[in-house]
Simulated scan of single mutants.
Amino acid sequence: MIKLTVMYPNSADLTFDKDYYVNQHGQLLKELLGDSIVSSDINFGIAGGSPDEPAPFLVIANLIFDSMESFKMSFGANSEKILTDLPNFTNTHPTVQISEII
């Protein structure tokens, strides 16, 4: 299985529209990627290494795919449409990692 992790770094000048991200961007992903997503989750950071530290990432999202081929055929084929939507909810660029789940 393959996990796509998308991390939005926290900063003083960060803007992020949670409602848009969850509802509109989430719907866009469902429409474009459909059944190729095995599971997904969104994590909104509330603290760093201690409750008094800011979270290093405001949002971390994970999308799970059956295989790299499934990822490439769905996300890879639609990446331009997905990336074009980013300015609608944030002013930052995410850090992205593709991982193998064992």
Rank of each mutant, 00 (worst) to 15 (best):
L83K: 13
D66S: 12
G26R: 01
M73K: 15
E100A: 07
N10S: 13
P54K: 02
K3A: 13
D35L: 01
D17F: 03
N62V: 09
F75W: 08
K81A: 12
L33V: 02
L4N: 01
I37V: 02
I82F: 01
P94L: 08
L83C: 12
D41I: 14
M68G: 14
D13F: 10
E69H: 13
I102R: 13
E53S: 11
D17P: 04
L33P: 01
Q24P: 10
F44E: 04
N43P: 15
I60L: 12
Q24T: 12
P87L: 01
S67W: 05
S11G: 11
E80H: 12
L63T: 00
I98H: 02
K3P: 10
L32I: 06
F57S: 07
D19A: 14
G48W: 04
L33W: 00
N62T: 10
L28N: 00
D35V: 01
I37P: 01
P9C: 12
V6A: 05
S74C: 03
D66P: 09
M7E: 11
F65P: 01
D85K: 00
K72S: 15
T84I: 09
K72V: 14
A61W: 05
Y21D: 08
S36A: 11
N62D: 09
M73H: 15
S79H: 13
L29S: 00
L14W: 03
P87A: 01
L33M: 02
A12K: 15
G45V: 03
M73A: 15
E100C: 07
L28F: 02
V96M: 12
A61H: 06
T5W: 06
A77M: 09
G34D: 06
G48K: 04
N91Y: 01
P87C: 01
A55M: 03
E31P: 08
E53K: 10
L28V: 00
D66M: 11
P94C: 08
S67A: 07
I82G: 00
E69L: 14
S39M: 06
S36D: 07
S11M: 09
P51F: 08
I64P: 10
E100F: 06
G45S: 03
Y8H: 07
S67V: 05
M1I: 12
I98T: 04
V6N: 03
S50Q: 13
P94D: 07
G76A: 07
F89N: 03
T90M: 07
S39F: 05
L86S: 11
Q97L: 12
E100N: 09
V59E: 05
D41H: 14
N88L: 11
N62F: 10
K3C: 11
N78L: 09
G34C: 05
K3G: 08
I102L: 11
F44V: 05
S39T: 04
S70G: 14
S79M: 14
T92F: 14
T84K: 09
N62W: 07
F65L: 03
